[in-house]
């Protein structure tokens, strides 16, 4: 799906836990997520902490969308 949306000219950031799969399906901007059942959360944290974590991931994703890249890029930090 990432590839088809990208093909239409819209930049996509793929937030995914299993980065090798994301690379194989052809995502270009990849942000590694937390865990498979909760990519953008962590039920072990309290609500405020968890939301902070999610916000950090969303901010990283937005930065990825604003970053010029020339090949598949995993945004680690």
């Amino acid at each position: 799906m990432v590839k088809e949306i990208e093909r239409a000219g819209i930049p996509v950031v793929h937030v995914a836990t299993v980065v090798p799969i994301s690379l194989t399906v052809g995502a270009n901007r990849i942000v590694p997520a937390i865990a498979i059942p909760y990519p953008l959360g962590n039920p072990k944290m309290d609500c405020t902490e968890e939301k902070k974590l999610r916000r950090a991931l969303v901010e990283k994703s937005l930065r990825a969308l604003e970053t010029e890249i020339h090949e598949q890029t995993v945004f680690e930090d």
Partner: peptide
């Protein structure tokens, strides 16, 4: 994508589990 283009969407956040 057709929908997104028609509505002028400029960026997509796609999440996978």
């Amino acid at each position: 994508t057709k929908d997104l283009v028609a509505d002028g969407v400029e960026a997509v956040i796609l999440t996978s589990t």
